[in-house]
Write a protein that binds this DNA or RNA. Structure first.
Length: 432
RNA sequence: UCCGGGUUGGGGUAGUGGUUAUCCUUCAGCCUUGUGGAGGCUGAGACGCGGGUUCGAUUCUCGCACCCGGACCCA
């Protein structure tokens, strides 16, 4: 016996069937918006990450030197790869560029609930539009994908904010402020006590009074208050942009899932405008389900023409947790439409029937193990076969086969020549 | 990297410093070359790995691996 690698998972057919159904919903929703699927390498040059984030990040990468002496890494996220792809063909690609992909990523991290070292994400991005409609379309896609999975507004919410609101309000204090530290404090405020939160803000350079005032303002989430308080062009523009995105989201059917939450900061990295995170409304899944936002500077920083971008990337592990808590996770079982049961030397006829049934797109199994009647029926039951076609020597003597409905146990003899005939989905009901 | 809790056939479990490790389930075959979801019989299958203590360790002990939570982190 060999052990699995920690943080890597096997998916057996039952669970995989549920995952496949979920991925299909998410991807079909993206196709419906005209997002086009792309394929990307598992391995990239490590410089894609170390150049931007420093060598410390290597600790969290599955990176190594390959036989050609290249410093490579399993990709921990899609964004740099997509940015590279956009830059490489920037002139050739018609805008806006709307891409999606579902695939695994790898990070050497501590394993926790909803977080493995190999994990799957569906990335959905729009490049080449700075209009609020692009942000709203990302939100609308995410909302459609989740509702398509059977979730409702009772199960999830998008907490939405704008990077320039926090930054702009902080800027309006005329003190020497560590803005990044303050934003980091806001991002963590959920998990901190009020005292700890205020202490962090004070540590970033605010006075105690300012910290309390700032915390109240941000927690209040009232855009007009914020705008009036900061009284700066940057904040005014940000508020207007956020309101425009929400207005578009209204038309796109996603507004009802959005809550303004200025405490949502989404880290510090490449986000530049609207940011949002999806949360479990019941609070049972404590961390955010996924996040997204606008990153208008990234393409340029990868050597391309300035190109606005907005995207989101739901992880399938947290998505699965959310669906399970909500009771809408698909049944974890395999499905089979027909089992063609052979008794005696009936392979030729059984094969013909199996092939005919598969022609019309059905899942059809037949015996490949030389098993007895009882054992075959047992197996048919175990694979959830809906209909069993018994091709037996006795039936064939009368030029018949037996159709058996597995749920009711009812069965009926039908002429072998008329099965499956022209029927798309023959069941016992067609012959009674 | 750190903290807590775990690990006995495929799954779920009982138990013990010393005979053949308990029970349920599962799987395979048979009873039954013609009827699964009922029964009977037969069979398969486990003390996570390594070191230590001991005459003897699945049991005590240490380390490691893996699992479940959590902290940090989260591009």
């Amino acid at each position: 016996m060999y052990d699995r690698i920690k943080g890597f998972r096997d998916f057996y057919p039952g669970e995989m069937a549920a995952r496949r159904a979920t991925i299909d919903v998410v991807e079909e929703t993206a196709r419906g918006y005209g997002f086009r699927e792309i394929g990307t390498p598992a391995l990239e040059r490590a410089e894609l990450w170390t150049d931007k984030s420093g060598d410390d990040i290597v600790d969290e990468l599955y990176s190594f030197e390959d036989q050609g002496g290249r410093h490579v890494t399993l990709t921990p996220e899609l964004t740099p790869t997509v940015a590279r792809m956009v830059v490489a063909k920037q002139q050739a690609l018609s805008k806006p560029i709307k891409w999606f992909s579902t695939r695994p990523f790898w990070r050497y991290e501590q394993v926790q609930q909803g977080r493995q070292r190999e994990f799957y994400q569906t990335n959905v991005d729009i490049f080449g539009s700075s209009e609020p409609e692009a942000d709203a379309e990302i939100l609308a896609w995410a909302a459609d994908a989740l509702t398509g999975l059977g979730l409702t507004g009772e199960h999830f919410e998008f907490r939405i904010s704008h990077r320039d609101i926090l930054g702009g309000v902080l800027e309006s204090y005329d003190t020497d402020l560590d803005t990044d530290a303050a934003i980091r404090a806001v991002d963590k405020s959920d998990k901190l006590s009020q005292v700890e939160y205020h202490d962090l803000l004070i540590g970033a350079g605010l006075t105690a009074d300012q910290a309390a005032e700032f915390a109240d303002l941000i927690a209040g989430g009232d855009l007009e208050d914020v705008e009036a308080f900061a009284d700066s062009e940057r904040v005014t523009d940000a508020v207007e942009n956020l309101q425009n995105v929400l207005a578009a989201a209204e038309d796109f059917g996603a507004r009802e899932y959005c809550t303004i939450s200025l405490e949502t900061a989404r880290g510090l990295d490449y986000y530049t405008g609207v940011v949002f995170e999806c949360f479990d409304s019941t609070g049972e899944v404590s961390r955010s389900i996924f996040g997204g936002g606008r990153y208008d500077d990234l393409i340029e920083s990868f050597g391309g023409q300035p190109t606005p971008a907005v995207g989101v990337a739901p992880g399938h592990a947290t998505l699965s947790l959310l669906c399970q808590r909500a009771g809408v996770w698909p049944e974890e079982e395999v499905q089979t439409e027909y089992y063609v049961l052979q008794v005696g030397d009936t392979r030729t006829e059984a094969a013909r029937i199996s092939r005919d049934l598969r022609e019309t797109g059905h899942v059809v199994e037949t015996d490949v193990a030389g098993r007895s009647f009882g054992a075959q029926l047992n197996y048919a039951d175990s694979i959830n076969a809906e209909t069993v076609v018994i091709v037996g020597e006795q039936d064939l003597e009368n030029d018949e086969v037996t159709i058996k409905d597995m749920e009711s146990g009812d069965q009926i003899q039908v002429p072998v020549d008329s099965f499956p005939g022209d029927l798309e989905r023959p069941t016992i009901d067609d012959f009674e």
